[in-house]
Amino acid sequence: MNKNAVFLGAAILLGLVAALLSVSYVRERVEEATAAARVVVAEAQVVVAAHDVAVGETVTEEDLVTRSVPTDFIPADAVTVEDYGQYLGRMARAPIKSGAPLSASALVPLYNQFSRVVVPGKVGYTLSVNENNSLSGMISPGDSVDILLTYEADEESAGPAADQGERVVPLLENVIVLATGSRVGEALPGQDNVAFSSITLELDPDQAERLTVGQKTGDLRVLLRNIEDRTPFGLDGLTEKALMSTFGGLGIDDVEYIIGGGK
């Protein structure tokens, strides 16, 4: 027999065997993948938020729906279909995303121990406000605010003339409003414009110290920001004279004084 023909036949035979083995391997992998896809994921019926719920909002039956959720994604304190009724009318102390299982720890009773609304490690601080500082009553529980401090900078501590006079500095940034007056959740029908003379803020202890000193030092101005905005403003403070200098140097005394001397 021709040796070349023998080698060619052997090569063809080995190729066919390899092809059959490859097909068999691929078929086994497909069958394994198909079997894995048939594995039933354990699910359970829980209560989820029908839409996003912001901090300070009270939860009603219209805000909740039931959904089957894989057990691996259900929190230990999830609100179930059987016990959801006891959580109606409670206030959200943390944002709840639409479709997320409702956690019992995220809801607190409105008038049963207000301290439960305060995050551990922080404090509630009540600040008196007027018509301007309450933005005409437009601040609501769950809003984020910033606070500016205006005070009179004396000549010794201020330094250059541009730094002297009335000064405005950022005191606190991005703090949460827990309550406006005695309102800690959504306003009841017909109470949208209820007046209030104080707001309760959630602060770190050192922020509470700064605010206490700031109240004694000068005037405070409360600024309202978008509830989803967490951007630091990076303000350094501004004086009256520095502001006026931007309009042509009207705020700075440019007269040069020569003191002392003699013959």
Rank of each mutant, 00 (worst) to 15 (best):
residue 1 M to R: 09
residue 250 L to I: 08
residue 88 L to S: 08
residue 119 V to Q: 12
residue 117 V to Q: 12
residue 249 G to P: 07
residue 37 A to F: 14
residue 111 Y to A: 12
residue 77 D to L: 02
residue 75 P to Q: 09
residue 258 I to H: 15
residue 13 L to Q: 06
residue 118 V to S: 10
residue 100 A to Y: 13
residue 236 D to T: 12
residue 27 R to D: 15
residue 239 T to L: 04
residue 1 M to N: 12
residue 64 L to W: 03
residue 6 V to A: 15
residue 157 S to D: 08
residue 94 A to P: 08
residue 184 V to K: 11
residue 34 T to G: 12
residue 152 E to V: 00
residue 54 A to L: 13
residue 66 T to W: 02
residue 60 T to L: 03
residue 83 D to L: 02
residue 156 E to I: 15
residue 111 Y to F: 12
residue 237 G to H: 02
residue 215 Q to S: 11
residue 136 S to Y: 04
residue 48 V to G: 06
residue 56 G to K: 06
residue 131 E to M: 07
residue 150 T to C: 01
residue 220 L to K: 05
residue 70 P to E: 08
residue 107 L to Y: 03
residue 35 A to Y: 03
residue 197 S to L: 04
residue 93 R to H: 08
residue 137 G to H: 01
residue 32 E to T: 09
residue 27 R to V: 12
residue 236 D to H: 07
residue 104 A to P: 01
residue 155 E to K: 15
residue 33 A to D: 14
residue 198 S to L: 03
residue 97 K to F: 07
residue 77 D to P: 00
residue 225 R to G: 00
residue 70 P to H: 02
residue 12 I to V: 14
residue 6 V to R: 15
residue 74 I to Q: 09
residue 118 V to C: 10
residue 165 G to F: 01
residue 259 I to P: 05
residue 48 V to W: 03
residue 80 T to Q: 05
residue 234 G to L: 06
residue 33 A to F: 11
residue 30 V to C: 03
residue 256 E to C: 02
residue 254 D to A: 08
residue 162 A to G: 11
residue 89 G to L: 02
residue 75 P to K: 06
residue 142 G to T: 06
residue 203 L to A: 07
residue 30 V to Q: 09
residue 137 G to V: 03
residue 8 L to E: 14
residue 3 K to F: 10
residue 143 D to K: 04
residue 86 Q to C: 01
residue 117 V to A: 14
residue 27 R to A: 15
residue 162 A to M: 11
residue 99 G to C: 04
residue 71 T to N: 04
residue 233 F to H: 13
residue 57 E to V: 05
residue 245 S to Y: 12
residue 125 Y to K: 05
residue 229 D to R: 08
residue 97 K to V: 11
residue 82 E to L: 08
residue 256 E to V: 13
residue 179 A to H: 10
residue 250 L to G: 07
residue 156 E to N: 15
residue 99 G to E: 05
residue 150 T to Y: 04
residue 203 L to Y: 09
residue 172 L to E: 02
residue 84 Y to G: 02
residue 252 I to W: 03
residue 116 R to L: 09
residue 146 D to K: 00
residue 112 N to P: 09
residue 222 V to F: 02
residue 90 R to S: 00
residue 92 A to L: 05
residue 210 R to N: 12
residue 13 L to I: 11
residue 68 S to T: 10
residue 211 L to D: 00
residue 76 A to R: 10
residue 15 G to I: 03
residue 51 H to K: 14
residue 157 S to R: 10
